[in-house]
Computed example of a mutant assay.
Amino acid sequence: MEAVSQMKATDIMTILFPTISVFVPLLEPKREEITKARKTFKYGATDRHQLDVYTPSDTSKKHPLLFWVYGGGFVTGERTLAAPIDLAYGNIGVYFAARGFVTIVPDYRLTPGATYPGAAEDLRDALAWTVSHPDELGPTADTASAYFLAHSAGGVHALTLLLEPSVLSAAPKLRAHIKGAIIASAPSHFEPVGHDVGPRDATSMYYGSPEATMAHAPLTLFRALPDEAVKSLPPLALIECERDPEWFKVVIGDFHKALVERGMKAPLILAQGHNHISFSYAISTGQGEGWAEEVVAWIKSL
């Protein structure tokens, strides 16, 4: 983590490759463990409708599901990245499997191939597939208990799954399976100083226009929910990286404030020392895993 602390920039594209270059060698000793643990299944019609599953070795009890939803700015990302970074996001899969979760890493459709709320619908369908295919997950999978751990744009999609009424209304019984969600470094809206949404911005490509982006941002959706719908939401926790871009910190804070104002007790976890990229790449390296242990403790406290 010392190398991350020496990076003065927080802009994602500036720190992206320098940060990855720090952690790729540290993950290499985990190669055999990660690649052997990974099992891949198809949950839908396209190549983007696939998911990887990592199962705990402990067969003495049932284990809840944990969906890791990666980010990528709406336009990039996949469950297993290309070499030399092909151990992400298997590093997260084996880490949480070792802590008692059947960990699932689903792909979802990206823009411009998908528009709002397509990616959230894919998360819904991935959950539906796991619930209806317990044999593929193994005998210790507790399909009645599912949690989402979602980062950056993935956090936007996970919040859309929970907050956009049309998404889960197509499969209303699925809501009961979702026992909690942890949203990490995800924009709850796109209006802070320092971030402009233009017509060619990736968010506008996904939502359809700058106006639609504002209208369907997670904070807007949450504020529009009636009180009874808020009460029916699963427990939420938020994560902020210490070295996130400042506008991310603003929008995370805005969403946390909105949750508290409506009576939701949502912890705000600080991923100490992390920038936006090291947050996920450090897992399974033995460095900077404090936020992940807090997530495990929070889930167990529910």
Rank of each mutant, 00 (worst) to 15 (best):
V193D: 14
L161D: 05
I182W: 04
S188Q: 07
P192M: 10
L174Q: 12
A176P: 03
G194D: 00
R175C: 08
I182V: 15
E164P: 04
K179M: 06
I182Q: 02
R175F: 08
L161Y: 03
L159S: 13
A171W: 00
L161I: 08
G194I: 00
P187W: 08
A186K: 11
S166L: 10
A176D: 14
H157G: 02
P172S: 07
E191N: 12
A176T: 09
R175G: 11
F190P: 08
A170N: 01
A171V: 12
S185L: 01
A158P: 09
I183A: 10
P172G: 06
L161R: 02
K173M: 06
H195C: 05
A186G: 14
P187G: 11
A170Q: 11
D196R: 08
K173P: 00
H177F: 13
G194V: 00
G180C: 01
P172N: 03
S166H: 08
S185V: 11
H195G: 00
L163T: 08
S188L: 06
K179H: 08
P165R: 06
S169C: 01
A158K: 07
L163N: 01
D196L: 06
D196F: 04
H195A: 07
P192Y: 07
A186Q: 12
H195V: 11
G194Y: 00
T160D: 05
L168I: 08
A181N: 05
I178G: 06
G180P: 01
F190W: 14
A186P: 13
I183Y: 05
A181V: 04
A181L: 05
P192L: 12
H177V: 13
F190G: 06
A170Y: 00
H189G: 03
L162K: 02
I182A: 07
K179F: 03
H195P: 00
H195S: 08
S169V: 09
L162C: 05
I182G: 02
H157P: 02
L174F: 11
P165H: 09
V193Q: 14
G180A: 03
A181K: 02
V156W: 12
S185A: 13
L168P: 03
H195R: 14
H177M: 12
H195W: 14
L163Y: 03
S188A: 15
L159Q: 15
L161W: 02
L174H: 12
V167L: 02
F190L: 13
K179Q: 10
S185M: 09
A171I: 03
K179V: 04
I183H: 07
G194K: 00
G180N: 02
I182C: 12
A158V: 13
S166E: 15
P172C: 07
V156T: 15
P187T: 12
P172V: 08
F190R: 05
S166C: 05
P192D: 10
L163S: 01
L159D: 05
A184P: 07
L163R: 04
P187R: 10
A171Y: 01
A171E: 07
P192I: 10
S169N: 10
A181I: 04
H195N: 09
G180Y: 04
E164C: 12
V193L: 09
S166K: 14
S185R: 00
P165T: 10
V167N: 03
I178C: 10
